[in-house]
């Protein structure tokens, strides 16, 4: 690790310019959690690190009636987990963040770094995907907005163009009668990436019939996976064990996990089925509860979602 140049950017524009000027070998660094591990294992040997840690303007959580929940890219996992605004507007994110790594990891890691790392084994993506989140990507040339579902391209690869930074994550206001949840399976109850993680969201009408639903899988493919077809089966339906089982079956089929020391492909597929069913059951219940009670209940759930 000799001779790495270190630049501290003072604005998004400066960071973007530095990225372009330094070319191939340049890497942005936020919390550094993902990056430093890659560097320690020599999987990545950047010649220049451009730190964006000082960009206070990218560290915020705001609510805006039109745009919804706006989270700056440099916001830490812990800030999201403990935010009252998030708890009120998108409690599933609180639930999800509480399961990331450990408190130390959550204090250091940023949401931007997490998404831009492009590792499918991370927790935030499935939860954000089911909320139809969008991201803003900015460079010295300007900014563009992209649905998160278009952001993940392949393993460790995202839609970021050279010179671009992720500056904001947005969660549009959720329709009334919406419940969302994230369930994670990992071997240990702290520090572990998910072996499988499932985000689910259900929006019910006044009669308890499903108007809209999303299901997203983490850690079981080259990117986080949205199961639109499977979730689509729920539209116009009321919950029944058979229906949820069928959706879970399709999610299982869509998953493309690989065998490793944490589990075989077969077992991971099985987990996807179990977690999908549980996530949908819970989301359905939260949505039902939400129609009666006031909005914004953040329920803490344990890892396997029970």
């Amino acid at each position: 690790m000799t001779g790495v140049e270190y630049i501290e950017a003072r604005s998004v524009e400066e960071a973007s310019r530095a990225l372009t000027e330094q070319g191939e070998g340049a890497k942005l660094i936020a919390g550094g959690l993902a990056l430093i591990i890659l560097m320690n294992h020599r999987l990545l040997q950047p010649t220049c690190l451009i730190s964006i840690r000082r960009l206070r303007e990218l560290r915020y959580i705001r609510w805006d009636d039109a745009a919804g929940l706006r989270i700056g890219a440099l916001t830490t996992h812990r800030e999201i987990e403990t935010s009252r605004v998030v708890r009120r507007r998108a409690p599933v994110l609180v639930e999800m963040e509480g399961q990331v790594g450990s408190i130390q990891v959550r204090n250091a890691g940023t949401i931007g770094g997490n998404l831009c790392h492009g590792d499918p084994r991370e927790d935030p993506a499935p939860a954000l995907l089911v909320l139809d989140a969008e991201v803003t990507l900015a460079s010295a040339a300007g900014a563009r907005s992209l649905p998160l579902r278009g952001f993940f391209v392949d393993f460790l690869s995202t839609a970021l163009q050279p010179g671009e930074l992720l500056t904001e994550v947005r969660v549009p206001p959720l329709p009334p009668g919406t419940g969302a949840t994230y369930v994670k399976f990992s071997h240990r109850n702290a520090l572990d990436f998910p072996v499988a993680g499932v985000g689910a969201r259900v929006t019910l009408d006044a009669d308890g019939v499903c108007q809209d639903a999303r299901l997203a899988l983490g850690a079981v493919g080259p990117t986080p996976l949205l199961c639109d077809e499977a979730a689509g089966l729920l539209r116009g339906e009321r919950p029944s064990p058979g229906l949820l089982e069928e959706v879970a079956r399709r999610a299982r089929a869509l998953a493309a996990p690989s065998s490793d020391v944490f589990g075989s492909e077969e077992y991971k597929r099985h987990l996807v089925g179990v977690l999908s069913r549980r996530a949908l059951e819970q989301a359905w219940q939260v949505a039902g509860d939400g129609r009666e009670a006031t909005r914004g209940r953040g329920r803490q759930r344990s890892r396997e979602g029970a």
Binding site: I37, A190, V261
Partner: peptide, 27 residues
Amino acid sequence: LLEDMPTEGGQILTPSLMEYLLPTASD
């Protein structure tokens, strides 16, 4: 419950604390 250092052809499959699962206080 958790710890194992399997090998394949003599190579360790859990070469670091990222893969080798030591129980944490919550386990």
